[in-house]
Amino acid sequence: MAVKNNMTASIIKKSNAPLPSRERGGGEGEKVPTLLKLKTTAGDHHIARMAAVALGLTLIENAIPTPLPGVKPGLANIVTLIVLARYGWRVAAWVSLLRVVAGSLLFGSFLTPGFFLSLAGAVCSLVVLAFAQHLPTRWFGAVSHSIYAAFAHITGQMLVVYLWLIPHAGIAYLIPIFATAALVFGTVNGLIATRFMHNADMSDIHTIEKQIESQT
């Protein structure tokens, strides 16, 4: 599914519309009020819905205590994986990045180091997924995508930590912990995504079967 006209802002000029009250007072000459309107398509609404689901999972995830800061299951990536498999990379990128930005606004971490860590992780994951999605589907499923994305995620985060936050070789000691977490959570998330899609496909087949039965 190709999403066209994402977030196209169009300026609609209405010369006949009544002037807003604050512009009426010192009015010299005719002012044309402009109305900024966001034209959204059904595709945009779909992306927003998916991002909202991902956001909900982020919220749940933040309630789970973690043994080490930075080790998180990344449940929201389940949504990204399903969207990638169903609607392609472009939609997945929108959902993932919207989730990062909206999530940071929700938790009050916008433009903080935590936000940039999330962003770096998400961007690296998406870059790797752009390649991983072309793996033959006969042999590779969402589990593979999830694991590659999880490794890309920590790679991006460790790069940001090393290049910007803690430029010290000592953080290399933490890499095995993060890599193990990435492998475990990547596999689990991939399995959840695969299972979800399998169940959804099965229910689709059942409804189609019922429709056929009712028609005959």
């Binding site: 593979s144 492998l183 399995l191 399998h198």
Partner: peptide, 23 residues
Amino acid sequence: ALQHIKIGDWLTILFGCIGVVML
């Protein structure tokens, strides 16, 4: 959910494990 893992996924998991152990 194990039946949903394809052969390439197993390979990915295997190489992931090897990579993590080596790291």
